[in-house]
């Protein structure tokens, strides 16, 4: 039995990890210095969710992938230029704050509203994907709150594998403690899956997919609804950048035997 899934991937943008990030406090709370100038990427675990979604859609004929993305419109547009070349999807853009100091509950409420409003949404075919944690807030909370809004009670986090069995049952592997996976069987959609790395490499850029996607991406960005996402009720006392700089002792031209002895002594200390 092949099910045509409606796969909604929630994913936003984060600053390029190679950039230096400095916290600053503004009138509405903390943020990043020059936040709007920092080059951005698709949030990595959300990216894995998107590639897994496209892979599943390919194997389940008739399936469709939406990417619901909440972020500052101008930044979303930049990031979509590359993301759109990866896999086919329809973008639903929401124009609002995507920084790490916003509250997952507010992000989730905005995403849930956008998902519930998707035309032709059929909950019996709905799979909501996302990254299990963002590289900004890193809370791993948005998808569960979103699930509660949508009334979905089959939720999986740290997912590395999803298999659709012949009878439509979903077999799911989630990361748990100690480098192990928990294996679950869920009778089918609707379900919410927060992806970890999964098993797929990042797809190569495909200009053809890019052209097709961009026809929908630009209008989606133009009509992006503006949403207010903050952290109501939260007061930050401080955000600090701890000093990570160490005084590195560089040992050059030492014999491997001497280095080995020093390392063994250190391990045994």
């Amino acid at each position: 039995m092949s099910i045509a899934y409606q796969i909604v991937v929630c994913g936003s943008i984060v600053p390029d990890p190679l950039q230096t990030l400095t916290p600053v406090t503004g009138p509405t709370g903390p943020g990043l210095k020059n936040e709007m100038m920092l080059p951005a990427w698709l949030d990595p675990w959300a990216g894995h969710a998107l590639y897994e979604a496209a892979h599943l859609a390919k194997n389940q004929p008739g399936s469709k992938v939406w990417l619901v993305s909440l972020g500052p419109k101008a930044k979303l547009q930049q990031v979509m230029m590359t993301v759109a070349q990866k896999v086919p999807f329809e973008l639903i853009a929401l124009d609002g704050a995507a920084g790490g100091f916003t509250d997952a509950a507010e992000t989730a409420a905005a995403l849930a509203e956008a998902i519930a409003a998707l035309p032709g949404l059929d909950r019996s075919k709905l799979l909501v994907f996302g990254g299990w944690e963002s590289a900004s807030r890193g809370a791993g909370a948005t998808l569960q709150i979103l699930a509660e809004h949508l009334g979905i009670t089959d939720v999986f986090m740290g997912v590395d594998e999803l298999k659709v069995e012949a009878d439509g049952t979903l077999e799911i592997l989630e990361r748990i403690e100690g480098g192990r996976h928990q294996v679950s069987r869920c009778s089918g959609a609707p379900a919410v899956l927060g992806w970890a790395t999964g098993n797929l490499p990042e797809p190569k850029n495909n200009p053809q997919i890019g052209m097709t996607n961009m026809r929908g991406v630009m209008p989606a960005l133009q009509k992006a609804r503006s949403v207010t996402v903050g952290a109501t009720g939260v007061t930050f006392a401080e955000v600090v950048l701890p000093q990570q700089q160490r005084q590195t002792r560089i040992v050059k031209d030492a014999a491997p035997d001497d280095i080995a002895r020093e390392i063994v002594d250190w391990i045994k200390q």
Binding site: V14, P15, P17, L21, P23, P30, L32, G100, F101, A135, S136, R137, G138, G233, V234, T235, F236, A237, E238, V239, V240, L241, P242
Partner: peptide, 14 residues
């Protein structure tokens, strides 16, 4: 911690 262990914030909540 925020931004993958780059910075640490302290907050209260109502």
């Amino acid at each position: 911690w925020y931004y993958r262990q780059r910075m640490e914030g302290t907050h209260t909540r109502t």
